[in-house]
C-alpha cells in the first residue's frame, strides 16, 4: 500500500490520485484531442475577478454570474475560493474545470503539509497551481476547459508580505506588485485600478479597508456596465459580489450586510 509512496512523488497529491485511478485521464495529457484543423481557438472566460493589495492585506473580489454562451445560467456563483488558511484562488473560466482544479490544489497543499510536516512554501504553492493549469491544457485546446485564475496568499515563512499572482491559460504565472484582474470584464477593471493607483487620492497599497471595498465594488460595477458576462451588483435581487480579505490573521469573508451598506453609501 505504501511501498510506491516513497521517492520524489511522496508529497505529490495528483500523483496519489493517478496511482489510485482517481484523476480524469483526459485532464492529464495535453497531447490528446488537440482541436481539429481549421477550428479557431477562442478563449472565453466570462466573468470578472480582481485582487489588489491595500493597507490591510490583499482584497480579492468576484462577481456572481455564471454564463453559458450568452445565457446567464446562475447568479450566485462563488468564484473566490479559499485554498488554505492564507491562500485564495479566484477563478475566471469554465466552472467545472476551475472548481475541480481548486479542489485538487486545496487537497494538494493539505496533503503536503500532513505528509511532510511543514507548510508548502509560497513558491511551491504558486508552482502547484501552474502545474495544474499546464496539465489542463489539452482541454483548453479543445475549447472546453479554459481556466485563468488569480492566486493571492500571505508569505509567512518569507518576508511576511502579501503576494499576488495572475496566470495565463497555459500556466505561466506573473507576480504583480499592486493589482490583478482576469475574465471578460477585466480590461475595464484594469483601467479603473490603474487610474486609481496613478491619479487617485492614495496609492492602492495605502487604502483603508472601507475605501478598498468601495473601490472593488465600483470596479466591478464598471466592468458589468459593458460586459454582459459580468454580474456586478444585482440591485433588485440584492446579489452582491464576494469579497474576501487575506491578512496575517487569515482570511476574512466580508458579510453581505457590510458590502450592502458600503454599496448603498458609496456606489449606488
Amino acid at each position: 500500500m505504501t511501498g510506491d509512496s516513497l521517492g520524489a512523488a511522496a508529497a505529490d497529491f495528483p500523483a496519489l490520485l493517478r496511482r489510485r485511478g482517481l484523476l480524469n485521464e483526459a485532464a492529464q495529457s495535453p497531447a490528446v484531442g488537440v482541436s481539429s484543423a481549421g477550428a479557431v481557438f477562442v478563449p472565453t472566460h466570462s466573468t470578472t475577478i480582481l485582487a489588489f493589495k491595500f493597507s490591510g492585506g490583499v482584497l480579492v473580489a468576484g462577481d456572481r454570474r455564471a454564463t453559458a454562451g450568452n445565457t446567464v445560467v446562475y447568479d450566485r456563483a462563488d468564484k473566490v475560493l479559499e485554498i488554505d488558511r492564507h491562500s485564495i484562488m479566484a477563478i475566471a473560466g469554465v466552472p467545472a474545470t476551475a472548481w475541480e482544479m481548486a479542489r485538487v490544489l486545496e487537497h494538494s497543499l493539505q496533503y503536503f503539509r500532513r505528509t511532510q510536516l511543514q507548510e508548502m512554501s509560497v513558491d511551491g504553492k504558486v508552482r502547484a497551481l501552474s502545474k495544474l493549469l499546464r496539465d489542463n491544457f489539452g482541454f483548453v485546446m479543445q475549447g472546453v476547459g479554459v481556466v485563468v485564475p488569480i492566486f493571492a496568499t500571505y508569505d509567512f515563512a518569507g518576508d511576511g508580505q502579501a503576494r499576488l499572482y495572475f496566470y495565463d491559460a497555459m500556466g505561466a504565472q506573473f507576480e504583480v506588485a499592486e493589482y490583478a484582474a482576469t475574465g471578460s470584464g477585466s480590461p475595464a477593471v484594469r483601467g479603473v485600478l490603474f487610474y486609481e493607483n496613478r491619479w487617485g487620492k492614495k496609492l492602492l497599497g495605502k487604502l483603508r479597508e472601507d475605501d478598498a471595498v468601495t473601490l472593488a465594488l465600483r470596479a466591478l460595477d464598471t466592468a458589468a456596465e459593458a460586459d454582459t458576462a459580468t454580474g456586478g451588483v444585482d440591485r433588485q435581487a440584492r446579489i452582491f459580489p464576494i469579497i474576501k480579505i487575506i491578512s496575517a490573521a487569515g482570511i476574512k469573508t466580508l458579510p453581505e450586510e457590510q458590502i450592502a451598506a458600503r454599496f448603498k453609501s458609496t456606489v449606488a
Binding site: 505504501t2 497529491f13 496519489l16 482517481l22 493539505q110 500532513r114 505528509t115
Partner: peptide, 17 residues
Amino acid sequence: ERLRMAAIELASAEGFT
C-alpha cells in the same frame, strides 16, 4: 512513518473523491 503515510493517503483520497 509507513503507517502514518498509509493513514493520510487513505483519508486524503476519501476526502477528495
